[in-house]
Amino acid sequence: MKVTPRGLFCEPGGFYVDPTRAVDRAVVTHGHADHARPGHGRVLATPGTLAIMAARYGPEMAAATQPLAYGEPLRVGDVTVHLAPAGHILGSAQAVLEYRGSRIVVSGDYKRRLDATCAAFEPVPCDVFVTEATFGLPVFRHPPDGEEIGKLLDSLRLFPERGHVVGVYALGKCQRVITLLRAAGYDAPIYVHGALTALCDLYEAEGVALGDLRPVTVATKAEMAGQIVLAPPSAIADRWARRLPDPLTAMASGWMRVRARARQRGVELPLVISDHADWDELTQTLDDVGAPEVWVTHGREEALIHHAAGRGYRARALALVGRDEEGQ
């Protein structure tokens, strides 16, 4: 395993994992743009991830693709590869690489709590564990999702004349928030910004029921009172939001845990809902996989390394170029 400017390279297999630039052979853990780039020669990924890449980059996103279901082993060069669920977004996987009796797991992005839009994380015991650390500080302990959705529904009751616009990342967070609302018994139509529709359709096609979704353009301003509208974070504080009556801006993100971050975004209702592991999940996972060696990527590596060292793991930071530290 080697760190190169293009990303993590598996020499005996002749492939990269989540390369940040176009390469010959790539294993892609999930569809977020900082992990899945277009233009590779051959891409190995779950069917869900391949569908997402095709939706985002077009059918020409790679010269050749090979779907690999969770748990199925595949020989690539001298390496046996299999994919294990990462619980991050639809199709997200950990790349489990075995070579001469030792096992390395590149977990991509992951979380441990339940998410109706994707398969739950499976800890795979290994010798080397590559972990993200987007929320790698002990101040990040995400509250229960249900409580956060409850805040949104309470606000809707208290401010029935205001349109509630929730900033969500298009891939993953959007669909998760919808399923959480449905699970909380909210079955009214949910309005979605145009930039989110394609991926919602894809999730539906992959068997994730989202209920009655409508484009914002079908409703008048007055009809949007007391309605929930999902939009990309960039749209919630811009002219786009003026189509809503007295918009109340919410944002669903793990960063909302820190007030200064929420204030910086101009958010009135911060919802701490994250697709990344929080501190407790990160540290729990290290213990679950029991890898004597831990490599830490994107985020606040130093705190997790400090913690891991204290627990007796050999931990180091893996400086990968081009990872999105903000975490989608």
């Binding site: 500080l137 200064a260 705190a303 913690h307």
Partner: peptide
């Protein structure tokens, strides 16, 4: 842990928080 607290305080910026 003192080091974890300092990194966290540095990131959050407010003692009570």
């Amino acid at each position: 842990d003192a080091a974890l607290f300092e990194w966290s305080y540095d990131f959050v910026g407010d003692l009570a928080e």
